[in-house]
Nucleic acid binder design. Structure first.
Lengths: 151, 151
DNA sequence: ATTGAAAAAAGAATGGG
DNA sequence: CCCATTCTTTTTTCAAT
């Protein structure tokens, strides 16, 4: 189990993964060694899965975000497996979840702009066999977006 | 503008934000200095917005994810401002987008479990004035989840 | 578990192609 | 824009508590 000191480390590393052990130690009122040991433990035990650079979507040409609700034609094991496999390979699909409710799957898709989105839908998504229905919610603006969980 | 070398650096740092300049240099067949200069430039120009630790949702007690579609009662400037302000303050809300389609806002919510979700809905979300309607899609399983954009 | 110190590695800064 | 070198800082290990 992890204690409050570990949770503080996780909070700080969520905000800045490149914070040095020295900086962490200063904020936690500890010496460097225990901080070093704790970070290694959190990595080893899988609390920390990795470290990522956060990029500017607009600047790197992924300024358009769309949430797409997919409904399957038939819910056979084979159809589910096939659709999942195909969706997984699409680089535009950042996230895909099996969800409860009216639809079966929810996808978060990121593309450059509207023409790129149309190409994605026409050339890739609708070519996947087994999808009955697609309902899209285009993101007009981002009210809030964080990757930092309340640990 | 950025070139292919810059894009490779962004790709690698998305996967591992703690990769050293030495490792980057080896993968790019460059010496350390240009790599150092390029990373600093990408940070300075805002292509890299920051670095985050990726945590294990289950392990830190955020094992339940729900997407919630919100519809507003009235679309006055004042009501929109109020709802946005309140939603922004909720720690369970990781993302909130203004979207096209049937509903107005899409929220990604992360909580510990079903009781915590019920508490969130009853004690927090439904206490916000101005929300007409909530439609929830509970995540049963994650088919794909990546933070690495195809740069 | 934490401290302090020492060795190894990486980062920052500089002068030159 | 890139390379090589030096200087500084950080990471990592280890003895001691």
């Amino acid at each position: 189990m992890i204690d409050e000191t570990d949770r503080k480390i996780l909070r700080l590393l969520q905000e800045n993964a490149r914070m040095t052990n020295k900086e962490l130690a200063a904020k936690l009122d500890l010496s460097i060694t225990p901080v070093y040991e704790r970070v290694k433990k959190l990595e080893r035990k899988g609390y920390i899965k990795g470290y990522s650079a956060r990029l500017d979507h607009e600047k790197i040409g992924k300024g358009m975000m769309v949430f797409m609700h997919l409904k399957l034609q038939v819910h056979t094991h084979e159809n589910i497996r096939h659709v999942i496999e195909e969706v997984d390979h699409l680089e535009e699909v950042m996230e895909c979840y099996h969800v409860t409710g009216e639809t079966d799957y929810l996808l978060k898709v990121m593309v450059k702009d509207m023409p790129a989105y149309e190409t994605f839908v026409v050339e890739k998504l609708t070519k996947i066999k087994g999808i009955a229905n697609i309902n899209s919610s285009i993101v007009m603006s981002t009210v809030k977006s964080t990757t930092s969980l309340d640990v």
